[in-house]
Simulated assay, not measured.
Amino acid sequence: MTNPNTLIFVDLSSDDPAKAGEFYAEVFGWENDPRPYGLYHRMVPGGQMKDSEGNDTPIGNFHLGIHKVANVRPHPDKDGVEPRTLSTEGRKSRVWILVSEDDSMDAILDRAIERGATLLWKDHFWKEFNGFNAAFQDPWGNEIILWVKGGDNPQIPANFTQE
């Protein structure tokens, strides 16, 4: 194989994609693009990927999908298949969001919690990847990790946990 396989999309599960689309639009400021409304919502963050110097590249930011668990599309069977419920317990995939320079982790957490999310943890620094992070679980059980780059000489507050 001469070219790598490319990740193009990640979906979150919801029993109410319309409400989940509104949640993510309000929490992160993304465009909520129903395709079709209530069944599948594409979240469009807008903007471009950045290069190592922080400049826009021609590559648009990744999109995120929200599918309805009652009948996940696409699928060869028009009626879908089991299971048709949310998986809210145990370990599952996590979605990592790089916090914009004109927003803050605390503001995002406040908006998410105000709309029904649960705070999982915050005030943590991960040295291996030089980042400050926090996490919440959305009202549908999806785990979201917020990330802020540490920079060249990160100043880690005394109350932060570290690894």
Rank of each mutant, 00 (worst) to 15 (best):
P17E: 00
G151V: 08
T88A: 08
K50P: 08
D11K: 04
R42D: 07
I145W: 12
P139A: 02
E101D: 15
K149V: 11
G65R: 03
D15E: 04
E53V: 06
L120I: 10
Q162S: 14
N142A: 02
V69M: 02
K68M: 06
P139Q: 04
N130M: 09
N153E: 14
V27H: 01
H41A: 11
F125E: 00
I97D: 02
T88R: 13
W96R: 12
E89Q: 15
W147D: 12
S104F: 05
N159L: 09
W121P: 03
G151Y: 07
G116C: 09
G141F: 00
W126V: 15
F132A: 08
K122Q: 13
D138P: 05
G21V: 01
F160T: 05
L98H: 11
I97L: 05
K127T: 12
T57G: 08
I145A: 09
V95L: 15
N133L: 13
Q137N: 06
A18H: 11
E26H: 11
R115W: 02
T161V: 12
E89A: 13
D138V: 02
S87T: 14
P139C: 05
L146W: 06
F160H: 12
F28E: 03
A158K: 11
L39E: 13
V72K: 12
G80N: 06
N3V: 05
L7M: 08
A70M: 09
K19H: 05
P83M: 06
T85M: 07
V44K: 15
N159E: 12
S52A: 15
G150L: 06
